[in-house]
């Protein structure tokens, strides 16, 4: 290859527009001993490419690779999950039931007739205290009953989601 062609190819190389064939020709050109002064700076680069391309794995390593045959494909172990999806659905149903049981009965509220509270007005202090105490006891009893029902339902849910 003459100097002018080499110079042109070298410019194309650094512009990134050279083909594989042209790059091979450049590598050959830079193998020669006597190069023009302005081309000598690039000789180490193309010599490096040639030598780096000849590197191989060691013989010992090649023998090591042969042992790969004995490595079995890794088995993927899938754990069977307990029926957590169904347990979650059952828990949701139980909670919905609990909420329904504890919720005040809307039909009762609708059928209640207006109460004439004036007949229940206490006439003295003792009667007022008695009526108030009775009302509070009734409220307390309802609350305890509600707590009992909620506790029973939650126990049921706990049994469903408990791991086997």
């Amino acid at each position: 290859m003459d100097y002018n062609t080499a110079k042109t190819l070298l410019e194309r190389y650094f512009e990134g527009t050279s083909t594989l064939t042209e790059e091979a020709e450049l590598r050959s050109y830079f193998q020669q001993e006597n190069l023009p002064a302005d081309m000598q700076a690039y000789r180490p680069l193309f010599q490096f490419f040639k030598i780096a391309g000849e590197q191989k794995v060691s013989n010992a390593f090649s023998e090591r690779l042969a042992s790969i045959e004995s490595t079995a494909p890794a088995k993927i172990v899938r754990f069977r999950r307990p029926a957590t999806r169904w347990a979650a659905i059952a828990a949701m149903i139980a909670l919905a039931l609990a909420a329904w049981i504890l919720a005040p009965d809307a039909s009762e509220a609708n059928t209640q007739t207006a109460i004439d509270w004036s007949q229940y007005e206490p006439e003295n202090e003792e009667e007022a205290i008695r009526i108030t105490t009775a009302a509070l006891q009734k409220t307390s009893s309802s609350l305890r009953r509600g707590m009992r029902i909620a506790t029973n339902e939650l126990q049921g849910v706990k049994k469903l989601v408990q791991p086997w």
């Binding site: 794995v57 790969i68 494909p73």
Partner: peptide
């Protein structure tokens, strides 16, 4: 080798790749 710049490490990389490839079955 160009990436890890060490001969032994480069060989390890190649071995790991080969094992993974072989295990793909």
């Amino acid at each position: 080798l160009r990436l890890v710049n060490d001969r032994a490490e480069a060989e390890d990389v190649v071995q790991e790749v080969m094992v993974k490839l072989w295990q793909q079955g």
